[in-house]
Amino acid sequence: MATTATQQTKWWSGGKSPFNIEYGKLMMWYFLMSDAFTFGAFLISYGSIRFSQNFWPDPNVVFNAFPGAGHANLPLAFVSVMTFILIISSVTMVLAVHAGHNNDKKAVIKWLGWTIVGGIAFLSCQAWEWHHLITGTHATLIDGQIQWVGQTTTVNPWGNLVDAETLTAALKNSTVQSIAQVVHEQHGNTMSHEQLLGLPKDQLLNMVNTAELHIREKGPVAFGGYFYGITGFHGFHVLSGVVINIVMLLMAKNDVFAKRGHYLMIEKAGLYWHFVDLVWVFVFLCFYLI
């Protein structure tokens, strides 16, 4: 086969790959391209809806939590951790593919292992973020009263800020539970939630520090739908990438590639993994940065 390498001018004349790559890699590339259109369609739909709204939540307000940091306002912190995890796992994947080129079984296993760890770490971060967004409730103006809601696919607590008059009126309309929670959030640990619930409504209302209270209206519902839909779809890709990498790891361990004489399979898994990273770059841009 080395003899044909000399006639490089006739790539297209048949009998060989015009791109000098095996069909599997070619297919993987075109699959990724078509997958790029799936993600592209999601993100472009998101853009279209965003442009059709008068108001869109500021991501820095929405994504400002960090595990273990309580209520500290840390915009972009957690997502930058997630981004770096994916970049690093991409680097380890490059090293695994390179080790495969050198038929270095030990190195392949090592770097694949680290890539899998990175993938699982990313998924765990995502799980925490979703959990935090869904269960972490926020005082929101809904139907003229204050309700505590999390970020779900049907409601969005990140609308416009409510002005002082509306807020005072809304507080009067709200249930004791809601007001008690407001007071509890503001005054920390001075009284337990149960104790607060026992107080009369008027007393509770007096305890609310309205000047410090920033309540928002409901925001665009599509925010949650797109966020969960697209990061979920991306997370699903990460998950399948991790599964593929685990399969690769086991195959490498069992000498399947060594017997075959080449580790080209790792290369294809690598392409998929980098694509996952590539998509994250754009998800990061669309949801967290702009």
């Binding site: 086969m1 390498a5 060989k16 790959s17 069909y23 080449h262 580790y263």
Partner: peptide, 26 residues
């Protein structure tokens, strides 16, 4: 096996030296 060739479609594979590669990745 310095030329890994999975099939007759592929006539040669490009190879970069380890040092170059490491530099590029970093």
């Amino acid at each position: 096996m310095e030329h890994q060739s999975a099939s007759p479609e592929v006539t040669f594979t490009h190879h970069t030296s380890d040092a170059d590669f490491r530099k590029k990745v970093i």
